[in-house]
């Protein structure tokens, strides 16, 4: 039997269905012959000439380097997701800085160099719908990709999840929540509500419990306190112990009308809807209009999403009595749909 030479072997594997086109091109680029013995193996073994061209890596550092490269690749992929978010330039820069610093510290630790104790617990301030939870979720995955957090998942809680109803209940509830969040991110929304109830409120017990957990599990838990800017300031002043334990502050500014419009287009595109030219102009006008505010406490991106969801319902209602609907009809949001949605706001 005539031996099949590289790269013909790769193309034969594609034809046989044992290699995807992407994999074949990657093996071609790296000069690697396909591994012998894979299902549907055609020739039995890679050609000897290819073996000699790709020196095998050996030694303990080979696996470590590969793992580090994979970690870097994954973390860059997560950062790309962050970059895809509209606006938030300051937030993106802060996350990069924190991630870069944490990575270098971790690499220094592994290399046996001196490292400072790095506390990653954070305070997120900003109005509703400015992307705090979204960024917290990305941050968890980013730190997981960097090897700083073991799991990187997000546990989002509020006062009711932490504070109990009788003496001793709060500590149990809070500890259970912390246990669920270990290895990932504990995101406490409207954290100041924990301190609102006065001296006898159980919220204070929850804060003490959280502060202790934030110290004890610094290596495996990232705690994020989030809420409105002014209230968070008040909260931190009321609890001086928190200031030093939550050294990183990230502010999420309100979106500009142009950014809100971009978000609207992104949301619609993701759901395979599109606006007519007339509807686009109307939406731009609404987002910039003096009488209408989506910024501040009105809800920013969340308010836009609510408006669009109403518009989708109005579109469905408009199409209700039409027997024949084409793809275009099903995808198009008109000015009338938006006007109806705004009326029922």
């Amino acid at each position: 039997m005539v031996a099949v030479s590289f790269p013909a072997e790769l193309w034969r594997r594609v034809e046989a269905g044992t290699l995807s086109p992407g994999e074949a091109l990657r093996l071609f680029r790296t000069g690697s012959a396909p591994t012998a013995g894979t299902p549907g193996d055609l020739s039995g073994s890679p050609s000897p000439s290819r073996k000699s061209r790709v020196p095998a890596r050996t030694g303990p550092e080979a696996g470590g380097e590969a793992a580090e490269a994979e970690r870097l690749r994954q973390s860059l992929a997560v950062l790309a997701e962050l970059d895809a978010l509209v606006g938030l330039e300051g937030v993106k820069r802060s996350v990069r800085e924190i991630g870069a610093m944490a990575r270098v510290q971790e690499l220094r630790r592994r290399a046996g160099l001196a490292t400072g104790a790095m506390t990653l617990h954070m305070v997120f301030t900003g109005h509703p719908g400015t992307g705090k939870t979204t960024v917290a979720r990305i941050l968890g995955r980013f730190f997981q990709a960097l090897g700083i957090l073991p799991r990187g998942h997000l546990v989002e809680v509020e006062r009711a999840d932490l504070v109990g109803e009788y003496i001793g209940h709060t500590a149990v509830k809070t500890r259970e929540t912390i246990r669920r969040a270990l290895g990932g991110v504990l995101f406490i929304d409207e954290a100041y509500s924990l301190a609102r109830g006065g001296e006898k409120d159980f919220g204070k017990e929850a804060i003490d419990c959280l502060v202790k957990a934030a110290e004890d599990h610094r290596q495996e838990l990232l705690v994020i306190l989030a809420g409105y800017p002014a209230e968070m300031e008040w909260f931190l002043v009321q609890n001086p112990g928190l200031q030093s334990r939550f050294p990183i502050r990230i502010h999420f500014p309100d979106y500009s009308p142009a950014e809100l419009y971009q978000i609207a287009e992104q949301m619609l595109a993701e759901q395979q809807y599109r606006l007519t030219a007339d509807a686009r102009a109307y939406l731009r006008g609404k987002l910039q209009g003096a009488g209408w505010s989506f910024a501040g406490e009105a809800g920013n991106a969340r308010a836009v999403r609510n408006l669009l969801e109403r518009a989708l319902r109005c579109q469905a209602l408009r199409l209700l009595d039409r027997a024949h609907l084409g793809r275009e009809d099903l995808m198009t949001i008109t000015r009338r749909d938006l006007e109806e949605a705004c009326r029922s706001w």
Binding site: L10, W11, R12, V14, E15, A16, P21, A24
Partner: peptide, 8 residues
């Protein structure tokens, strides 16, 4: 798949 392999 045959076409893909020729194209690659």
């Amino acid at each position: 798949r045959w076409l893909q392999s020729r194209a690659l």
